[in-house]
Amino acid sequence: MDELIKQLMAEGLTEQQAYKAIEVIKNFAKKKFPLFGGALDKLFDKYGPKDEEDFMP
């Protein structure tokens, strides 16, 4: 996940924007593939920040 965040940041997004973009993608995938919802949550939650203070300044 760190590699994806770094790629998004290299494209001009801030770290917070990059994490938000991934959150949008996760939610989209969960709607399109509801059977994989739990697996997607586990995958994305494992690698993403848990709350605001996890973002680097």
Rank of each mutant, 00 (worst) to 15 (best):
I5T: 14
L35A: 15
P57S: 02
D41C: 06
F44Q: 00
K6T: 14
A21C: 04
M1H: 11
L8Q: 10
K31I: 10
E53Q: 07
M56T: 08
L8N: 08
P49S: 06
I25N: 07
A10L: 08
A21Y: 05
A21K: 07
E52M: 06
L35R: 14
L35W: 12
E53L: 05
D51E: 15
L4S: 11
L8Y: 10
L40M: 13
M9F: 04
P49E: 01
G37P: 09
A21R: 07
M56Y: 02
K46V: 01
F33H: 13
L43M: 09
D54Y: 06
E52D: 15
F44M: 08
K30P: 09
L40H: 02
E3G: 13
F33M: 14
F36M: 15
D45K: 13
L40I: 15
Y47C: 03
K46L: 11
G48I: 00
V24M: 06
Q7M: 12
I22G: 01
A18H: 04
E3W: 05
I5G: 01
M1Q: 05
Q7N: 14
D54F: 07
A29V: 11
L35K: 15
G38H: 07
K30Q: 13
A39N: 08
Q16R: 15
K32A: 15
K46S: 13
M1R: 02
F28K: 14
E3K: 05
A39T: 10
L35H: 14
I22S: 02
K20N: 02
F36T: 14
E52S: 12
A18R: 02
E11L: 14
M56G: 09
K6M: 12
L43C: 04
P49I: 11
G48F: 06
P49Y: 02
K26V: 04
I22Q: 05
E53C: 06
K42F: 10
D41A: 05
Q7C: 08
L4C: 10
F44C: 06
I25G: 03
D45M: 06
M1A: 11
F44P: 01
D41W: 02
D41I: 04
A21F: 07
A10E: 15
Y19K: 01
A29D: 06
V24L: 07
L8K: 08
A18G: 05
E23V: 03
D41H: 05
A10T: 10
L13P: 06
V24F: 04
M1C: 09
D41K: 11
P49M: 03
A39F: 12
D2G: 15
A10V: 04
Y47H: 11
K46Y: 10
Q16K: 15
F55C: 00
N27H: 09
D51W: 03
F36I: 09
V24T: 08
K20G: 01
P34Q: 13
A10M: 08
F44R: 00
P57E: 07
L4Y: 05
F44E: 00
K46W: 05
D54Q: 07
L13T: 04
E23S: 13
K46P: 01
P34D: 13
Q16F: 03
F44L: 02
K30Y: 02
E53N: 12
N27S: 11
I25V: 12
E52Q: 12
